[in-house]
Computed example of a mutant assay.
Amino acid sequence: MSQQPNKQRHLITVTNPRSPVSEAFRALRTNIDFSSIDEQIQIIMVTSSGPEEGKSTVTANLAAAYAQADKKVLLIDGDLRKPTAHKTFSLSNRYGLSSLLSQQADLNEVIQESGVPNLYLMTSGPIPPNPAEMMASNRMSTVLQELRQQFDVILFDTPPLLAVTDAQIVASKSDGVIMVVSYGKVKRDIAVKAKANLDRVGAKMLGVVLNNVKRKASEGYYYYYYGN
Rank of each mutant, 00 (worst) to 15 (best):
A64G: 05
L161N: 06
A163C: 10
G54V: 09
S92F: 01
P126S: 14
P117E: 15
P117Y: 05
P129N: 03
L80R: 02
I41D: 01
T84D: 00
F89Q: 01
K71I: 02
E133P: 08
D166H: 12
S99P: 08
I127F: 05
L74C: 08
Q68E: 15
V46K: 05
G78P: 04
Y95K: 11
S114P: 04
A63Y: 02
S90A: 10
L162D: 02
A67Q: 11
S141G: 13
E53G: 07
M45N: 11
V73Y: 03
T47K: 11
N108A: 14
T165P: 13
D70A: 10
P128V: 06
D157P: 06
K82P: 04
F156G: 12
A85V: 15
V116S: 01
A105G: 08
Y120E: 12
Q103G: 04
G125D: 03
K173I: 15
P51Y: 15
A136S: 08
P131D: 10
Q42S: 12
P117S: 14
T57I: 13
E52Y: 13
K71S: 05
Q149T: 10
S92C: 02
S90N: 06
K173W: 14
G96A: 08
R148T: 08
V58P: 09
F151H: 06
G96I: 08
S174K: 11
S114Q: 07
M140K: 10
S56C: 04
Q150E: 13
S124K: 01
D70W: 01
R139Y: 14
S137Q: 11
L121S: 00
A67P: 09
K55Q: 10
L119C: 04
L101E: 10
D79Q: 00
I44R: 05
Q145F: 13
L101I: 11
S174F: 12
K55D: 08
A132H: 09
Y95C: 03
L100D: 07
D79F: 01
G96Y: 02
H86N: 07
E133N: 09
I44E: 07
A167N: 15
S98A: 09
D77F: 02
R94Q: 13
P83A: 00
K82V: 00
M45R: 10
N93C: 00
A132Y: 07
K72Q: 06
T57Q: 02
S172R: 12
I43P: 00
L100S: 05
M134W: 07
L100V: 13
P159K: 10
P117Q: 12
T165C: 14
A67S: 15
N130H: 05
E53K: 05
P160V: 08
A64Y: 01
S90E: 05
E52H: 13
E113V: 11
F89R: 04
R81G: 07
P159V: 14
N93V: 00
V143P: 05
E53T: 04
Q103R: 13
V143Q: 03
T47R: 12
L97R: 02
T123N: 01
S99W: 03
N93L: 00
E146L: 12
